[in-house]
Design a protein around this nucleic acid. Structure first.
Lengths: 175, 175
DNA sequence: ATAAACTTTCAATATATTTTGAAAGTTCAA
DNA sequence: TTGAACTTTCAAAATATATTGAAAGTTTAT
């Protein structure tokens, strides 16, 4: 009836987190390995090399390299050069708020902004505005565009909240 | 220099919207066809049959059927029986705010809630809390869990805003 | 009960995405 | 300049996901 929940060791907990973060990512259009690398770096106190990641996640060098590039382009991972070392090391931001704002910024730029541009264009079509089909279409598109526009502004606020005194206050409620 | 933007016809605009909505969906873990069916229904003033959808999107009966089921399970599409007709018709909610609310509700239930449950479990691990590795892990997980918890509450507020007088006021700013 | 109208299922197939690994490229100390 | 240490690339292979379509299932009018 009442399941006894096993207290996990650090190793088990890390594995569990990495695996779940990977599965979670796939529901959001992020590939499993990329999400797993990110998870691994988030729970690693020290920077890791490509070889560390290859070994711990059991994936190939090429795979690690490509996904690491991607994570860097998303601003979620940084290259680190440890003085005296030849190898490159990698590290991830561990403050989840910074991670979230970074993801919001990028997805906005890559997806929301282009979509809003398209919707603006679709709203202005040829044809009789009295026609039922035309009317329904324009209304639906316009609704989506307005919604997107508001979301856009709201996300901007969130992202900029860190830098603004007024919004920063609001943010503390959330953070 | 200054591109002349062609004013699209209704047909072209619909096609463009359906195709873009489909591509957009794939960035968010939604399959192309499902997103396209949703888009098609959103810009169709009247309910459509499976055959209409098959024809307009050029996909098979089985595919339409499965994705339609999925859309229904997400609460984004409804079956409609037109009186006197034998066939089933399908229609989508056109108020984008309701669409968004519905998606938030479902994703919260399917993804965020289980993730929060897992994180709570991972936060409570065996081992010395003074150990650097353990400390870093617990801190990171705890940060993510708290963030997720706040996001959860915030999303609940948004979803419930429609029903609350106070929040409804706030909502008007956004809507 | 029958059969036409319609819906659902799912194994096979097709498509898309991810992963590999070896070769090519780069950097740097000596 | 050489070559060892390390990184990047990308065509081929593996894997995962989406799609088809025909057969099975269901509903309803007669």
């Amino acid at each position: 009836m009442c399941d006894k929940i096993k207290q996990l060791t650090l190793i088990e907990a890390k594995q569990q987190f990495i695996s779940s973060w990977g599965a979670f990512g796939t529901h959001w259009g992020i590939n499993r390995t990329m999400a797993q690398i990110h998870a691994l770096l988030m729970v690693s106190p020290d920077p890791l090399t490509q070889d560390d990641v290859m070994e711990q996640l059991d994936v190939s060098r090429g795979n690690v390299n490509m996904n690491m590039r991607d994570l860097i382009s998303w601003g979620l991972v940084d290259r680190v050069i440890l003085s005296g070392e030849r190898k490159e090391y990698f590290t991830a931001e561990k403050d989840i708020w910074k991670v979230a704002t970074q993801i919001i910024k990028e997805r906005k730029k890559r997806e929301l902004d282009p979509m809003l541009k398209l919707l603006a264009q679709l709203e202005d079509i040829e044809g009789d505005k009295k026609d039922k089909e035309v009317k329904q279409f324009v209304e639906t598109i316009s609704g989506i565009r307005k919604f997107g526009h508001n979301a856009d502004q709201m996300l901007d606020m969130l992202v900029k909240a860190d830098e603004s005194w007024f919004l920063g206050g609001l943010l503390k409620i959330f953070k």
